[in-house]
Write a protein that binds this DNA or RNA. Structure first.
Lengths: 141, 141
DNA sequence: AGCAACCTGAGACTCAGTATCATCTCGGGG
DNA sequence: CCCCGAGATGATACTGAGTCTCAGGTTGCT
């Protein structure tokens, strides 16, 4: 398996390329929807990889820092992750199959500026997640 | 203490007005920023109210259902709540003092429609939270 | 007042996430 | 090519949020 984006991100940032990290990067690359830390633990076990739970959490944290992965909060309140590349953006997540798609600015920045102006708050951070049904699931009924 | 909005919401929805629920509504009314379930447990203990932990969680769930309270996810990943009234809206939360303020549509609906058109997703639900510094904390330095 | 449905508190339980620490390994320097 | 120390790992124990169960207590309708 060729090195994934996550592996390059680790390398570029000066992190060691360990066996565990490569494996976790592979597991993430093999997923396509969003996933939880527990999913990766289960995947690792299914493949008989000996990776500690703690290592999975630690690696996810690092990857979130490096923005190779983004953390999101599902409507259920669960914490999940999606693989991604660009610096800051948002996702539309299919609540049926979990497929996610990046979306760009789309006038969003203007909305934030308008809110700042009207509330007097200085907005430093935000969390924006959209949930719905993807085109495939729509047509599949 | 006069009955809070939360108490009316429970009543209107046909829930029983129990001592525990009134107390919890009071605790919520006495807070002004966002708070966690654990905060309420601590508040209850501080006031020597004998309310079970489970009851606090259950009541919060009910209040979220009734939209007397909204659940939000802080950037840290913690689950918190804010008291609120209107049906569906969003908040700007001060990351310094926790004060929150409602915001209305602000062109947001148009952004969502645009995203639907461009991605082909049908968007059913979303999560939008803004974090920053409120005017008071800004001027307080 | 009486009753049944609903609600409660206690406590046990599950599960995510974190802390600790002895051991291991990656990879830069000799 | 080997050495060696910083950095990473996995086992384990721990914390803390949230859930479940159930016997007993309240609420509100009649």
């Amino acid at each position: 398996m060729t090195d994934s984006i996550a592996v390059h991100a680790l390398d570029d940032a000066g992190y060691r390329l360990t066996e565990a990290r490569r494996s976790i990067a592979d597991l993430i690359a093999a997923r396509n929807g969003h996933f939880t830390a527990a999913d990766l633990v289960a995947d690792a076990r299914a493949r008989h990889l000996e990776i500690g739970r703690a290592t999975i959490f630690r690696t996810l944290d690092v990857l979130v820092d490096l923005q190779a992965v983004e953390r999101l909060d599902l409507p259920t309140g669960d914490h999940a992750y999606v693989a991604c590349e660009r610096a800051h953006h948002h996702h539309v997540v299919c609540s049926n199959c979990g497929a996610s798609r990046d979306i760009d600015d789309a006038g969003w920045r203007a909305v934030v500026r308008d809110i700042e102006r009207r509330t007097g708050y200085r907005i430093d951070d935000h969390r924006l997640e959209l949930f719905g049904v993807c085109p495939d699931c729509k047509s599949a009924g």
